Simulated scan of single mutants.
Amino acid sequence: SLVFALYDGLRLATLLVCVGAANALANPHRLLKSLPGALYELGVAVVVALTFAPHLIADVQRLRAARRLRGRPDTGVRGLLQVGLPVLEGALERSVALAAAMDARGYGRTAEVPTAVRRTTSALTLGGLLGVCAGTYGLLTAEGGTYGVPVLLAGLAAALAGLRLGGRRTPRTRYRPDRWTARSLLVAGSGVAVAAALFLAGTTDPAALQPGVVPLVAPALPLRPAAAVLLGLLPAFLAPAPKELSS
Rank of each mutant, 00 (worst) to 15 (best):
G127K: 11
A116E: 14
R179P: 05
A26Y: 08
G148C: 13
R105M: 00
P206T: 03
L129Y: 13
T136N: 11
D205E: 07
P225I: 06
P222W: 01
A226E: 04
L85D: 08
R109W: 02
T75S: 14
G138L: 09
L32T: 00
R164D: 08
G166Y: 00
G43L: 09
L50S: 03
L160W: 05
T125K: 05
M102D: 00
D74C: 11
A38G: 06
E143I: 02
A207R: 07
G148H: 05
L56F: 01
E244T: 08
G138V: 00
T120S: 09
G9I: 09
G144K: 03
A193W: 03
P114A: 12
S247R: 14
T14K: 09
L185A: 13
P54Y: 00
T75A: 13
A193K: 08
L200Q: 15
P171R: 04
G127E: 11
R67C: 07
R68A: 10
F4L: 15
A154T: 01
R119Y: 05
R176Q: 12
P219E: 12
Y107H: 11
R183P: 05
S95L: 15
T181L: 10
P73A: 13
V19G: 12
Q210F: 10
V46N: 05
A66H: 03
S34C: 10
L230R: 01
C18E: 11
R118T: 01
V17I: 07
G9N: 10
L124H: 03
L88D: 03
G232K: 07
Q210K: 10
R78H: 04
A228P: 06
G212W: 08
G155I: 00
L81C: 12
G9E: 09
L6W: 10
R68T: 04
G127A: 13
L139R: 01
A26N: 12
Y137W: 11
L10W: 01
Y40W: 14
V117C: 04
A5T: 02
G71T: 00
M102C: 00
P150E: 06
A66P: 02
L25G: 01
V48G: 05
G76W: 06
G138A: 09
L42A: 15
L130R: 06
A45Q: 14
V132Q: 11
E93S: 12
L153K: 00
S184W: 05
A158E: 11
G138N: 04
C18K: 04
E143A: 11
L50E: 11
A218S: 11
A58Q: 00
Y40E: 14
L234M: 11
S190K: 02
T115N: 08
G135L: 13
F52D: 05
S184K: 09
F52Q: 11
L230W: 03
L209Q: 13
A26Q: 14
S34M: 12
A157C: 09
R176W: 09
A38V: 07
P54L: 02
A188W: 07
A196R: 10
R164F: 13
R72V: 07
A101N: 02
R70T: 04
V87H: 09
R176Y: 05
E41N: 04
L35C: 04
A159Y: 07
A239S: 15
V149I: 10
L238P: 07
A5M: 09
V83E: 10
M102L: 12
N23T: 08
L185Q: 09
L186A: 15
P36A: 11
Y40P: 03
L85R: 13
L129I: 15
R174F: 01
L160T: 06
